[in-house]
Amino acid sequence: MRNHPPLVELRAVSKTYGQGHAEVHALHDVSLVADTGEMVAVMGPSGSGKSTLLTIAGTLEDPTSGQVLIGGQSLASMPRSAKARLRRQTIGYVFQDFNLLPGLTAAENVSLPLELDGMSARKARVAALRALDGLGLENRAGHFPDQLSGGERQRVAIARATVGQRKLVLADEPSGALDSVNGEAVMRLLHSACKNNAMTAIVVTHDAQLASWADRIIFIRDGRITDQTIPAVGPESLLTVEPEK
């Protein structure tokens, strides 16, 4: 029995774009639950509907049918202003191409969403510096995005997505533009945010190595969830193989 509702729940969500011959069924009857502290990866080929799933879970789009609940609260009955507040306060987004504002420093990029949500500039800056510090970017706070490496830019984007009281991080191919070592660092940070800050992350990727950082991996194909991984007994089993004879 659950004591709390899951942080994110999609109930029989479908999404259709266009009409008639141009109709495209991006999602069919998708149900998904992600708990607090859980990192879920969604794997599937291009065009399978995984990014649509993310935008709907992130309240950026409405489903054609079905329900989305965040913290047990249905979005269908939520006024637009409340939905916008939920997006600002609860959900952070990480994109493949970082989406940092080029005219702002790293610290300003991170503090901006807090200021937009009404926090004083001074408090927002303190929170931003703390977030950057936690990701090893204390010496990069005053740098502009074009003065940062790809890996550093994505860490700034993660700081922006996790700063404040956010509970949910949605990441769309967050390591797609990075090499494997920097990609791993990004996934390590996201997983750590889930475990240490009781956040929930849904990460869309086609890369099995990056998905393997998740607690659970959901496979999507042609807009339908087809399968998911079963939690392993324990990684130590891999290190107790019989010696070679």
Binding site: S212, W213, A214, I217, T229, P235, E236, L238
Partner: peptide, 10 residues
């Protein structure tokens, strides 16, 4: 992928 998850935990 489940095997990869175990290696990643290690």
């Amino acid at each position: 992928v489940e095997l990869m998850q175990q290696w990643t935990r290690i």
